[in-house]
Design a protein around this nucleic acid. Structure first.
Length: 114
DNA sequence: CCACTGACGCGAC
DNA sequence: CGTCGCGCCAGTG
């Protein structure tokens, strides 16, 4: 993981990215999952904000979705479309911009932790 | 320093 | 069940 614009280099920012990159291909995690993983269970809102500022194509931020199953947004060109596309390409079935969490959610939140 | 705001969550209705 | 609205944290202006 590498910071692009340099501005966003806070501790939390780093933690969020690190956790995101631990999400195995073909699976997804919710924003809340990531928040819990980094020890800020109440900061899920900010998790989204941080990922939204991300412009690094290498970061698998498309694997982080909403807890209600909707894929949510995407801050890069292509928006949600591209996010869905990436997920499908990894084998995650996406229907009407929704994912079956029971099936694709990470088995255990602990895999996101260092 | 104060106020706003965002790739969200979840209890109420 | 589906929708609505308030709440949340931390960074940015």
């Amino acid at each position: 993981m590498k910071r692009i614009k340099s501005k966003i280099n806070t501790q939390l920012w780093y933690e969020v990215y690190a956790a995101t990159q631990r999400i195995p291909p073909g699976t997804v995690a919710t924003y809340a999952d990531v928040a819990r993983a980094i020890g800020r269970p109440r900061a899920w809102r900010h998790v989204g904000t941080v990922l939204g500022m991300n412009r690094d194509p290498a970061t698998p931020c498309h694997r982080v979705i909403r807890s209600d199953g909707f894929v949510g947004g995407f801050g890069m060109p292509g928006s949600t479309r591209e996010k869905v596309r990436r997920l499908c390409r990894e084998g995650v079935a996406v229907t009407a911009e929704r994912v079956d969490l029971r099936r694709y959610r990470i088995p255990s939140p602990r895999i996101l932790r260092a």
